[in-house]
Amino acid sequence: MARERLTPGPEHPITVEPAGGRVVVRAGDVVVADSESAQILREAKYPPVVYLPLADVNSSMLRDSASTTYCPFKGEANYFDLVVDGGVSEDAVWVYRDPYDAVSTIAGHVAFYPDRVQMQTEVAAAR
């Protein structure tokens, strides 16, 4: 069965832009990710979501999950469990491995549920 595939527009806008600074993600006192190449996805009335390049995430703390979800605007999301200091936060991180064209720049990037980690952003200084 074919899944519904929708294109962002005036009724459901989606934008993706560089975060413009450094983003550090921690689970407790442990740094999970540190990036100066993060992107912010803004979708309709949802809170903005920060996507970080997978290359800037400590991959030893990610464990593949069997969970998936589907968004008709972005595609299929796959999940990772976050494993830190022996503790596991199931499905705490997601990735769109093959996102739809409108959000193709988030390919190779992951997002964290904000209630599972602490995210600190530092805005780049104007030059």
Rank of each mutant, 00 (worst) to 15 (best):
R127M: 10
A66M: 07
C71W: 00
R127P: 09
E4I: 15
E76F: 04
L52K: 01
D98T: 12
Y79E: 08
L41R: 15
T68S: 07
M61Q: 10
V32M: 05
E36N: 15
D98Q: 11
P13E: 12
V95H: 08
S35G: 02
R3P: 09
A92D: 02
L62G: 01
R63Y: 03
D85N: 10
P72G: 07
F112L: 06
V50T: 04
A126F: 12
S59F: 03
D101T: 13
D34A: 02
D98S: 11
P72Y: 07
S35N: 02
G87T: 14
H12Y: 14
D34H: 00
G87W: 12
V110Y: 03
P99F: 02
R3H: 10
E76M: 08
R3Q: 12
E90L: 14
A27D: 13
V50R: 05
R127Y: 10
L62M: 04
H109P: 05
G28E: 10
R97I: 10
F73S: 14
R5I: 13
N58F: 10
P114K: 07
L41N: 15
D29M: 08
E11M: 15
R63F: 05
F112W: 03
P18G: 03
Y113C: 01
Y96K: 00
P99D: 03
W94K: 13
T121A: 05
R63E: 06
V31A: 01
P48S: 04
G75Y: 00
V117Y: 09
P8Q: 13
A92Q: 03
F112E: 03
D85S: 11
L62S: 00
N58V: 09
A44D: 09
G20H: 05
A125K: 09
A38Q: 00
D64L: 10
F80W: 09
P13N: 11
V31P: 01
V123P: 10
Y46N: 13
H109G: 04
S59H: 02
A111R: 05
P18D: 01
Y51I: 07
R26H: 04
D98N: 10
P47F: 00
R3Y: 08
V16C: 15
D64Q: 08
F73P: 15
A27G: 12
S60R: 08
D81I: 14
Y96W: 02
D115W: 01
S67P: 12
K45T: 09
V117E: 10
M61H: 10
V93K: 04
A44Y: 03
E11K: 15
P48L: 00
D34C: 03
P13I: 04
D91Q: 05
V95A: 12
D91G: 04
V57T: 02
V32G: 00
M61D: 08
V103S: 05
P53G: 09
T69E: 08
E76G: 05
F73M: 13
K45L: 07
A38T: 02
R5V: 14
